[in-house]
């Protein structure tokens, strides 16, 4: 029982973790991309389509990542290249993504999807209880954990990471020192897009291997909230993602157990929980202020 619940929580949390991790890097570079939901949903439909066409879930994984990256490129051209309002551009990306995925996915509704099977790690997966939970997982789970650790090391242990944070704190000073502010931000945005695309692919290849319109159901937005929850520290994202995974799963289990609460109220739980968490985090200003990228969402135009 514990094992089954833990597995479902992990499956629900992985896409949140991946999407939030990408956005965390983006925001650390001073850019706010509200298009996570859109990049995710396009990644999801691209992954489904590619896996469906080739029969290989791994082709689906790559397609999802590429699709997310392409969406991010559109955002980068506008919000970085043309210095458009980041909030509005991100919203446009989400609206566009939901439209495109609906259009492309129309013919996939009701088709059976291709499932990405777990990869058991020899020996480790034999450990009782923990083994099946942690070491008999699919690619996305391993990737999400490894990427989180790598991003943490990158941000706080490498010079490139230092540069990225510098660009997010004070782009003018960074520019004055000769750093390519827009180049660094573009790379960060593309990374964010790839991560969101992967997160979407996880939904159609693992979580619910089929195509449903608006399959992301606000997960991209929850991922944005998770970044705030983690106060822009990668390792804290893991806690946040699993907490939200647990809330999502709790709602299913409560419905299955026939709790005498309207199902709609249970479905609203993740969204209400997000609001509660945002309030709790924001009311502790000392905690958030230290890590908030100082130049978040401010467009940068090189002065020359």
């Amino acid at each position: 029982m514990i094992e089954a619940v833990a597995l479902t929580i992990i499956t629900a949390a992985t896409s949140l973790l991946l999407a939030a991790l990408g956005e965390l890097v983006v925001e650390r570079s001073g850019v706010l991309n509200l298009g996570v939901e859109g990049m995710m949903v396009v990644g999801a439909v691209a992954a489904f389509a590619a896996a469906q066409a080739t029969g290989s879930p791994y082709v689906g994984v790559v397609s999802g990542a590429l699709a997310g990256g392409t969406m991010a490129l559109v955002f980068a051209c506008l919000a970085l290249g043309l210095a458009t309002n980041q909030v509005a551009t991100g919203l446009a990306l989400t609206l566009f993504g939901l439209g495109v995925s609906g259009l492309v996915g129309e013919s996939f509704v009701g088709l059976p999807g291709v499932t990405l099977e777990p990869l058991a790690i020899p020996l480790l997966s034999q450990i009782p209880i923990l083994g099946p939970i942690l070491f008999n997982q699919d690619l996305f789970f391993y990737l999400s954990i490894a990427l989180t650790v790598l991003v943490a090391l990158f941000l706080f242990r490498s010079r490139r990471g230092l540069q990225l944070r510098a660009v997010g704190d004070d782009p003018d000073a960074a520019h004055a020192l000769g750093m390519g502010v827009l180049k660094i931000r573009t790379l960060a945005v593309l990374f964010g897009g790839v991560c969101a695309g992967l997160a979407g692919a996880q939904l159609t290849l693992v979580y619910t291997p089929q195509w449903v319109e608006n399959i992301t159901a606000g997960r991209g937005w929850i991922a944005l909230a998770l970044v705030v929850f983690a106060s822009w520290r990668p390792m804290r994202l893991i806690i946040g993602a699993y907490l939200f995974g647990a809330v999502t799963i709790a709602q299913f289990h409560a419905q299955a157990l026939g709790v005498a609460i309207p199902s709609q109220m249970l479905s609203a739980l993740p969204y209400l929980a997000t609001i509660v968490v945002l309030v709790l985090i924001a009311s502790n200003r000392r905690f958030t202020m230290v890590n908030t990228p100082a130049a978040l969402a401010q467009p940068f135009i090189p002065n020359r």
Binding site: R159, L162, Q163, R165, A166, D169, D170, D172, A173, A174, A176, L177, M179, V290, A294
Partner: peptide, 14 residues
């Protein structure tokens, strides 16, 4: 052109 949140050494390295 200094970054408040960083140390002296980090600023010089940047």
């Amino acid at each position: 052109s200094l970054f408040e949140a960083f140390t002296v050494a980090q600023n010089i390295a940047l």
